[in-house]
């Protein structure tokens, strides 16, 4: 290398928040050991969880957290897209609408009425939708929250101009690779591992909890067959629905399982509630 070499400008990284809890963005700050190395490889241009300093776009890579829940967000994501060379969504909210997409399956305002004393102050859409429903997305990272190793892998792949090494098969294969004994087969514990996308390293089953499906459906999830099996093992219909209807309640595959029962449960709820009973 000669002294005359001009340094190549570092690619710029921006992090954007939509309807979300910030947990996925914080995964970037959780990359403690790699953060300084990463900061030398990219220039962090916009990341309000880290600094109020912000640089104008366009940006080489944008990480987008959260789902679209307001009319304002519908417009803002278009601006982010227009100013980003690569747009990578991070987390279940951005990929499938998140837990807040429960409202997609309820009458407009029903959930807001349960939560807020004055829901009339809210100005939000009746649905929570994934980023990909509004703009072109270059890559989706799943999970609630995302796995920080996967986040690093996507950034490193981007920097090297290669495809990220990220699996779309089931959590079961991660359980088997690490030698975790199957909770479903050995103890009939309800587990979404067989239909959930790998990426967490099969974390929950390794600490004796069935998979909650926070990474959403695997590439060829057969949710009907698993739901039938779980019910056959004695898991109640409403528990099966709750299992499918949490972090990725609107994800295709999960939504059908959650929705099938939600209707029945709602009907049962209505029967138990007198018209005078105040909302909780």
């Amino acid at each position: 290398m000669s002294d005359a070499t001009v340094p190549i400008p570092r690619p710029t990284l921006a992090v954007w928040k939509f309807a979300s809890c910030d947990g996925c963005q914080l995964s970037l700050l959780d990359c403690e050991d790699e953060l300084l190395t990463l900061a030398k490889a990219v220039r962090i241009a916009h990341f309000t969880e880290m600094t109020r300093a912000s640089t104008l776009g366009p940006y080489d890579i944008s990480l987008v957290e959260g789902s679209i829940t307001t009319a304002e967000d519908v417009e803002r994501i278009k601006v982010v897209r227009a100013n980003s060379r690569f747009l990578v969504t991070i987390g279940a909210c951005a990929a499938t609408g998140g837990v807040q997409a429960l409202r997609n399956f309820a009458p407009p305002g029903e959930f807001a009425g349960m939560v807020y004393a004055h829901p009339e102050y809210l100005d939000s859409l009746d649905t929570s939708t994934p980023i990909s429903a509004h703009v072109r997305v270059d890559y989706e990272l799943h999970g609630c929250p995302i796995d920080r190793e996967q986040l690093l892998e996507v950034l490193l792949a981007f920097l090297a101009g290669r495809r990220p090494v990220i699996a779309s098969y089931s959590v079961c294969q991660e359980c088997k690779a690490r030698g975790t004994v199957c909770l479903l087969v050995s103890r009939a514990v309800p587990c979404l591992g067989p239909v959930t996308r790998a990426g967490c390293g099969a974390l929950c089953p390794s600490i004796d909890r069935g998979c909650f499906g926070c990474f959403g459906p695997s590439d060829s999830a057969n949710c009907d067959a698993l739901a039938t099996r779980l019910k056959g093992l004695g898991t109640s219909e409403s528990s099966v629905a709750r299992l499918f209807g949490t972090f990725n309640t609107a994800a295709p595959g999960f939504a059908e399982q959650a929705q099938a029962v939600r209707v029945n449960v709602a009907i049962a709820d209505t029967r138990h509630r007198t018209p005078e009973e105040p909302r909780p």
Partner: peptide, 23 residues
């Protein structure tokens, strides 16, 4: 079938593998 791949993981003769480079 769940397409989950448990059968191939526990099979004592399944030998398929994949090779990946990371940077």
């Amino acid at each position: 079938c769940l397409s989950c791949g448990n059968c191939t993981s526990v099979c004592p003769t399944c030998f398929c593998s994949d090779v990946h480079d990371t940077t």
